[in-house]
């Protein structure tokens, strides 16, 4: 009897713990009341609507989008040639290169943000926006390299040789034959990088200036001062955005093959 109940009971409790709090947040965002509470008082869209009217959220959403998209693109521009070099050539200093590009995943983000603040923003006068951009690019680089490398590893190197022998230039062969075949990997890397950057907090902690602040940092600041359901509403919206993107990616790209 106990054995028969073990599986469903365990799974139910686990899901309650993992997903339950998130469902509460979703429910709370439709509250009609003034304060954050569960069960929610009444039902309304007022907090969902309010999120869109808060100027600082709009601004920081823009910053986060810019960082997530720009940073991921930059990481791919740096990461694709590096992955290509590591998978196709017998590279001198291969281990050093590998170590350098994978390091940002090992070093805690808060330290990176602090280091950039202390040695670039304060003394050299690097703008906070640029520092954020650089930090997010560095943070995404290891993911980009990992995912792109994995799809390059699944692609035979000799198809490029075949293209060259058929008259294509080296660069042409890369664009005609390699790129179309690792497109799925690159898109997956983009999505992974986007989600990682968008949800990232520690890297951006020390890097904020007037009007320049990422959305999660803005949310942290807001929730310290205001105890209304707008953070819940915003959290739900963002969560559904992330989940939607990942689901679409899985559906159309087989995202999990690459990650």
């Amino acid at each position: 009897m106990i054995r028969r109940l073990f599986t469903p009971l365990t799974l139910f409790l686990m899901m309650l713990f993992l997903i339950g709090p998130f469902l509460i947040i979703v429910a709370a965002s439709f509250s009609a009341g003034e304060t954050l509470a569960f069960p929610p008082q009444g039902f309304s869209f007022r907090w969902i609507i309010k999120v869109f009217t808060i100027e600082s959220f709009r601004q920081s959403f823009g910053v986060s989008m810019f960082l997530a998209i720009g940073g991921t693109l930059a990481a791919l521009i740096l990461g694709i040639p590096a992955s290509y070099a590591m998978s196709r050539y017998r590279l001198p200093f291969a281990e050093t290169v590998r170590f350098l590009v994978s390091m940002p995943i090992i070093v805690p983000g808060i330290i990176v943000g602090l280091a950039l603040l202390r040695y670039f923003v304060i003394p050299v006068g690097m703008s906070v926006t640029l520092a954020l951009f650089v930090a997010h690019t560095a943070l995404i680089l290891p993911y980009a390299v990992r995912v792109v490398s994995a799809s390059l590893a699944n692609l035979r190197a000799d198809i490029e040789e075949a293209a060259v022998i058929l008259g294509s230039s080296r660069l042409g062969a890369f664009f005609r034959v390699v790129l179309p075949n690792i497109r799925g990997g690159i898109l997956s890397a983009f999505i992974l990088g986007f989600v990682t950057s968008f949800n990232q907090v520690p890297v951006s902690l020390f890097l904020s200036g007037p009007g320049v602040r990422t959305l999660p940092i803005d949310m942290l600041g807001y929730m310290e001062n205001v105890f209304d359901p707008s953070i819940a509403a915003l959290s739900s919206l963002l969560a559904f955005l992330s989940i939607g993107i990942v689901f679409a990616a899985e559906r159309f790209l087989g995202f999990s093959r690459y990650v």
Partner: peptide
Amino acid sequence: MFQNRAEGLALALPAALFAALVFLVPV
């Protein structure tokens, strides 16, 4: 075709330099 090690290094260099400069050095 992929024997030119200098060519390979040149492709990997931007990423490595970027990571070294904005990451390793300040940390």
